[in-house]
Nucleic acid binder design. Structure first.
Lengths: 336, 336
DNA sequence: CTGTTAGCGCGTTCAA
DNA sequence: TTGAACGCGCTAACAG
């Protein structure tokens, strides 16, 4: 059929318009002032030829390509999806695009993936990195500009945007305590998750603050089926006296809720249940799930704000920690 | 603090190794045969300098950058997330990365977004484009190589990967009919969604095939709250005689399920309810939601397979339509 | 205000 | 096998 035709270049436009490449470039970028006549002839030449500049050539000259990368352990996590959406839209408003790199929870691939992604982009977002702290500290130094999400890294020269899980758990425990609960079970998240470690700190602090409260930790995970599978341990804790359960996140809570229903355990009658993240589905569960709300897309926007500053050569802006907001719903009730 | 240091280039490596740039390039790309001694000195120079090649320069020379873009109406849709995940992982295994471009359901921005994304990448995936067919036909010609997802485009020179919604709806109606239902309500999706149009065709075909079945269409949407809001219309249809409901997708079904519960309508006792897509949450609802399963990540992988062929200069491979699989669960039951 | 020139960093001829 | 030289497409500096 048709010949594989080479793309048209700025030289073609210049020739057709009868001017120099520099003039075409000026018209293209609106630099300096150009003779209105030239502008018109260049513009019509561009239109006639259907020319569009080579992004690659521009990148080579400028040393940047207006693209950032987000490295994430699992694209299926609603929290990360929300952050990606917020980041993508915020960056787009400044003419930047977002590359996604899903490490599929393979901790060993994280560093290589991050380095490779950074090669292609002007900056990086490391979302809930699972790698050891020492490795992460080394890495952030190599991939700057970079912003870290949901992973504490004290005194590191990196802006961090995250969620105050410690505070969130404490607030949640307070809520349950006010309802009369004194024995609580916490269904934990992935061992590699830093935010799970933070939640556990929240658990410890809550216990310290309220000597009358006891919290047992049972193994869980991060997905629906993890919650479903955790039901057995939760029931054991319930038999042992627990009257309320806090799940690592809403997915775990919803999976657990389902299984508890199958087992004939009334929520919140016999057992109160709360999740974390306040995913859209939370308020649509039966009963509606009490959760700690986290501003997912807002986090993405804040990440972009910090990254943009860094890209522009600005300072490392202050880290920010969002305080989760309690959304008390039907799944938690007074102890009886 | 430290000087803003210019990145090291292949010339630096060549100098340090005492060879020509060409030799370094050869070692880097494993082309031709190079003297083992040179190889070693180059490699140690690379290691010593911490050199890594410029992606931009490579892109300029090769005319490609091993990146593809996926344009999607809404990143929050579980179906698109699954496709993105499958696409991203499949492409990654071939050394390609994925750029995401979320149009936020702004139909008017779709074309510009697609063109801009294509500039930066070697190929494009148009996921459920909302634009008019004529515009889409024109567009696909301009952004080739491209694969279209979930949008029929008869006789177009583009591989299409999609879901047989017509057949899916028919199978779902058959399921309900076997349970004794004769009056059904369909809660429709977004007006701009081509897959909704396909579902409506399925509805029509089902009616034609089963003269004893009547299906009423009520307005809906694509998200949880759309389903919640559609409850009123559904109840009206129920009062009018409908004993079963098919929702545009699982999100709508789940939102509807919630509201029906609040209204004291028993599912499936009074009203059977089915969704579409079989999102992870479907089987965890109360009652578990009957749905039509769609292989989300598999679709992403198939998209990549076709795109890869196209990028390699291969032929336009056959389009493929996945037949949804019925997952009959507790939300649908015999009419009584 | 305009054109000419010199790179940006790399791959790839073409001789040697 | 190796190195020198050119070109990918564009922007920025410098003259004119």
């Amino acid at each position: 059929m048709s010949e594989r035709t080479r793309a048209i270049t700025i030289a073609d436009v210049a020739a057709k318009a009868g001017v120099s490449q520099a003039s075409v470039s000026r018209v293209l970028n609106g630099k300096q002032s150009v003779d209105p006549g030239i502008v018109r002839s260049v513009q019509s030449a561009i239109a006639a030829l259907g020319y569009s500049p080579s992004v690659a050539a521009r990148s080579l000259v400028h040393g940047r390509n207006d693209t950032i990368a987000m490295v994430v352990p699992d694209l299926e996590n609603p929290l990360f999806q929300g952050i990606l959406k917020g980041l993508s839209r915020a960056a787009a408003s400044d003419g930047y695009r977002v590359l996604v790199a899903d490490t599929a929870e393979r901790v060993d691939d994280e560093e290589a993936t991050a380095l490779e992604a950074r090669q292609r982009c002007d900056a990086l977002v490391l979302c809930a990195p699972r790698m050891p702290e020492s490795q992460l500290r080394r890495l952030v130094g190599r991939v700057s500009p970079v912003v870290v999400v949901n992973r504490p890294l004290p005194d590191a020269a990196v802006p961090i945007v995250g969620v105050d899980y410690v505070r969130g758990i404490r607030d949640l425990v307070d809520h349950l305590r006010e309802l009369g609960h004194r024995r609580i079970a916490y269904v934990s998240g992935p061992a590699t998750s830093a935010s799970n470690a933070e939640r556990l700190r929240g658990v410890d602090e809550a216990i310290a603050a309220h000597p009358d409260v006891r919290i047992d930790v049972v193994p869980g995970g991060s997905r629906l089926d993890d919650g479903y599978a955790a039901a057995e341990s939760v029931v054991a804790a319930h038999v042992g006296g627990a009257t309320a359960v806090i799940a690592f996140n809403d997915l775990v809570a919803l999976g657990l809720l389902q299984r508890l229903g199958e087992l004939g355990i009334d929520v919140p009658g016999e057992l109160s249940l709360a999740g974390f993240d306040d995913v859209p589905m939370a308020s649509f569960a039966t009963p509606p799930l009490t959760s700690m709300s986290v501003p997912r897309t807002e986090i993405g926007a804040q990440v972009w704000a910090r990254l943009r500053t860094l890209i522009a050569g600005g300072p490392i802006e202050h880290s920010v920690l969002y305080r989760p907001r309690l959304e008390a719903r039907g799944s938690t009730g007074p102890v009886r």
